[in-house]
Design a protein around this nucleic acid. Structure first.
Length: 109
DNA sequence: GTGCTGACACAGG
DNA sequence: ACCTGTGCCAGCA
């Protein structure tokens, strides 16, 4: 589904991201599915532009990994929020335990 | 119109 | 578990 209203789309995406509770995360694709428009890449685009206004560290890739540029900054957040991390001990790489941390918001909008 | 790029996702090897 | 290639959606040169 192509995006007809960019502003509304951005609002929807940010809304979903803000709805993610502390200690939980959502994948770009999951957010795109809930918003109902565009795709994971469009969500990424929105985050790249407006991500600073929302808890961007709660948005991760489907496999539980994060973009290189963010994984370092996000680590402190996860430790502080108690987000379920894979491998329990966060050695060098930071990875989310999607099995436990994945969050599914109640409504679409 | 053609091609490249990106805070992605999934299938193969 | 790791790396590569292909598919996707939308924007921009």
């Amino acid at each position: 589904m192509p995006i007809d209203d960019v502003e509304a789309y951005v609002e929807s995406v940010l809304r979903v991201v803000e709805s993610i509770p502390t200690g939980r995360v959502m994948a770009y694709g999951a957010i795109a599915a809930i918003v109902g428009e565009g795709g994971p890449r469009q969500v990424g685009k929105v985050m790249a532009d407006y991500g600073g206004a929302v808890p961007w560290w709660r948005v991760v890739r489907a496999d539980g990994t994060l973009p290189d540029s963010h994984r370092h900054r996000a680590r402190e957040r996860y430790l502080a929020e108690g987000t379920p991390l894979a491998g329990d001990r966060i050695g060098g790489d930071l990875r989310i335990d999607m099995r436990r941390a994945a969050w599914e918001p109640a409504a679409t909008a």
